[in-house]
Amino acid sequence: MSDGLIASMAQALRDPAQPCPAGLRESCPADPAQRFAIYRNNVQSSLIDALADTFPVCRALVGADFFIGLARAHLQACPPRSPVLMEYGAEFADFIAGYPPAASLPYLADMARLERAYVMSAHAADSVPLTSRQLQDLLSRADLLHDARFQLDPALALVRSDYAVASLWGAHQEDDVTAALAGVRPGQPETALLVRSDLVVAITAVPQSSGELIQHLIDGASLGSAASIFQARHPDFDLASALGLLIAYQSIIHVQLPGAN
């Protein structure tokens, strides 16, 4: 029955240890197992390539051979669930965190998180930032600012790490990666801010305090409550410079004032 055949083919395509499924026509030239191997190789290699395209810095960090082993193990555990391969790799960072051979590189999982965030940011919905005039107008309604809620650019994202992932990523964009890496201290915690401007995503390391403030705003906190938490946790840091990041990167796309719709 053909239905069982598709099921056994699907299983054999995923697991190279499985034998070639029965039910293939004996043919010349080349026996069915050799023919089936073409499909299996194509499935495996094209999905590994898709991961390599989304995680180029991870691949560079560990080398091509290790990456193939890692990617193969990942696609056994978490095969793609959507035909849109742009989205494949959502679980890659968590998988790396639990993958013993990668344990000697504790920042690899966070680098995967950052690279995945990069792709998501690149393809996030378009939005129109508030103009500086619109932002200035808010100052005339200062009494409403406390309960104002900011809606930020869908392309904006944050990745916080105990390692210097933003700097490591940046070094891999340079022509001389080795030279650039010499100046990076991997053990330095960083908060990476991703913003998309002029169709291009930029990654910059921002102060952890600013990252937290922005994260609170993303999570829907009012400006007043986000600012209160910020000042309680980071009394030495400047709220204006944290807000200034969002303004400089034109990341505020809407401000919901209390009483307005």
């Binding site: 691949r59 560079a60 960090l61 560990v62 080398g63 091509a64 000697s104 010499a182 991997p186």
Partner: peptide, 12 residues
């Protein structure tokens, strides 16, 4: 395949 990461991580 190789079990040991052998890429730019060695430079970090």
């Amino acid at each position: 395949w190789k079990n040991v990461p052998a890429g730019t991580c060695e430079k970090t």
